[in-house]
Write a protein that binds this DNA or RNA. Structure first.
Lengths: 341, 341
DNA sequence: GTATAATACGTTAACGCTAACGTTTGCGAT
DNA sequence: ATCGCAAACGTTAGCGTTAACGTATTATAC
């Protein structure tokens, strides 16, 4: 292992001078020396020891990405949204010259452990950590950026999207296409997170239009025999014609189950999703969905984190990115002469 | 920040004793002292400083996952296979009490930098790094595990699957279903990696059965107007009835383009994929594909890495995991009275 | 009762680096 | 000639931890 000392010896200077060169300090070292040392370092294949740096300077060029680990055997990265975001984030972080650690965390103690043991420069929370946020705020100096958090705790830096507006847009589009009898498909427990806001936006528009969403039209993720259930609501004298799903991956399940029981999309049942994962455009039919710009989200997240690192006292921000409708082929235009819209 | 010294002072012992306790050394410290110190450490909220540990011990409990960064704006984790594998790996690594770094790398210098600067305990290569492997072998003592590498360099620890056999199985299944005129869809450049072996297996079975695959039936990923191309080969007097894709995500593209040009799957065109990503079972129709066990692959990878870390002189192994056919609905049974199979 | 060994600690130095301060040199201003 | 000052270095000490060795105490053997 080549150390500063080794280079210093070869160059006939002190290791401090080498250190300065390696850290790009142009003020305390002459241009000539700097170039000479840099050349020697290259020749010798010097790689700075990040651990020693971190120890001596009480700071590191390390960012932790924290993922919620729900179950023993559920893979957070199997969710395309999460992995896509992580991938973009990793790219941005690298661009900034930082390294990235990946941490699965279950409870609070694991979070602090992750952050403190490597004295990371900052951390990004991907997913929900609501119970932990309050505690984190208290005893932590580390710059933190949350994503998609609707925590009531103030002074939290967060990057999210306009989930409520997204829900509204979905509803508006269904109405515009002439649908009047709709259903909803998503997780059972509403934890005041993204899903809740998507629903609220959706329902609010329907209510505005005088349309109610009966509770039997709320279908839970994990419903047994989803296909039969779908057939059920699509039959009868007042059949559901469209279903709004909380996320694209939920929509994929609808596609699958609809196919299984012989329900055609969009002829028998229209579907709209949320997120616009890359897969959605490839579905048959292509999924109409509410698009969020994951790349942008990651880049904003990174920017905010870097700002927090460089200016530790900068105020907390709550960024809300816009969403847009990706109109494709999964929502049918219903022939509805009585439409008032 | 609570240090060993702080705890030592409170407990009235030397920091070395605390260090021993924290490292689970039961031999050099009495049970009574050990428990007392452990309690104090808990109370004070001690978190060991990994950087200091790494510096002092010349080893860390850190694993690097290296991902190939192809383009500026291509996200490696948008590929479901990669992200799924990474997710499983992260879980396994955590179970072993190690931390995980995520590194995008482009060229060799970046690799060594990643590995050396944090003096990681080991690294996993996800994706292809063939040019780098030779150099890595030379100047590196760090335990390395490659995945899906067909490098000719001996003495490399690698975890892969039986891609060739997978290709064979796909071909056998197509033949069994009565298909005689097949096509192939995958990347243009064959780099002696997984794709190459999948094709070779596929073609070998066809050749065995006296069926040739004309070069115009090799369709490149990224073909412009793929849909029209598909229509083309499915028409004429000797139409293609089935297409083997190099990976599931390629099959998804076929689905999409086939739908776009009005080609029904599997009635007009049968499709088989490779990998069995979670999405595949949800496609309409569910994709018939060659399944590999990603979870198993990750766990074997982790096991091998740990073994290499604990026994640095253990011989290199090349693990080849089996594959199996996931028979679903995307390959039609052709009515073919002249079939000899 | 002495030798031997095991147990349970403590001491010292070092890991590679940097913060903080010190020193030398050169040079323009007075 | 002297002062001031900036530029370009060097010195020292310490970050939190552990490896390697040292020491006191107690137990065991004969």
């Amino acid at each position: 292992m080549v150390t500063l000392k080794d280079i210093a010896q070869r160059a006939g200077v002190s290791s401090m001078t080498v250190s300065r060169v390696m850290n790009g300090n142009t003020k305390d070292v002459s241009r000539k020396t700097s170039e000479r040392i840099r050349k020697i370092a290259d020749e010798m294949g010097y790689v700075p020891n990040s651990s020693a740096r971190s120890l001596a300077s009480h700071s590191s060029r390390l960012i932790a990405a924290l993922l919620q680990e729900y179950d023993e055997d559920r893979n957070p990265l199997e969710d395309s949204y999460t992995s896509c975001f992580l991938g973009e984030l990793a790219h941005q972080i690298k661009e900034e010259g930082y390294d990235l650690m990946l941490h699965y965390v279950k409870d609070y103690s694991e979070i602090t452990y992750s952050l403190k043991s490597w004295n990371v420069a900052g951390a990004v929370f991907i997913g929900m950590f609501d119970e932990s946020i309050r505690k984190l705020q208290e005893d932590n100096q580390i710059p933190l950026v949350f994503t998609d958090s609707y925590s009531t705790v103030r002074s939290i830096t967060n990057v999210g999207i306009d989930d409520y507006r997204g829900g509204e847009m979905a509803a508006e589009y269904f109405l515009k296409c002439g649908h009047r009898n709709l259903a909803f498909f998503g997780p059972e427990v509403l934890d005041n997170g993204v899903v809740t806001h998507r629903i609220r936006g959706f329902v609010s528009v329907l209510r505005e239009a005088g349309i109610s969403l009966p509770s039997e039209n709320f279908i839970n993720l994990g419903t047994e025999n989803l296909g039969e259930r779908l057939k059920g609501i699509c039959a009868g004298e007042n059949p559901v014609t469209g279903i709004f799903t909380t996320a694209d991956y939920c929509a994929y399940q609808i596609y699958s189950e609809a196919y299984r029981v012989g329900l055609r999309i969009p002829e028998d049942l229209s579907v709209a999703g949320f997120d616009d994962l890359s897969m959605s455009a490839l579905m048959t039919p292509p999924l109409t969905t509410i698009r969020q710009d994951i790349k942008k989200k990651a880049s904003v997240t990174c920017d905010l984190l870097m700002k927090n690192i460089r200016e530790p006292d900068s105020p907390a921000e709550n960024i809300v990115l816009g969403v847009e409708l990706a109109e494709r082929g999964s929502v049918r235009k219903v022939d509805n002469p009585f439409s008032i819209l």
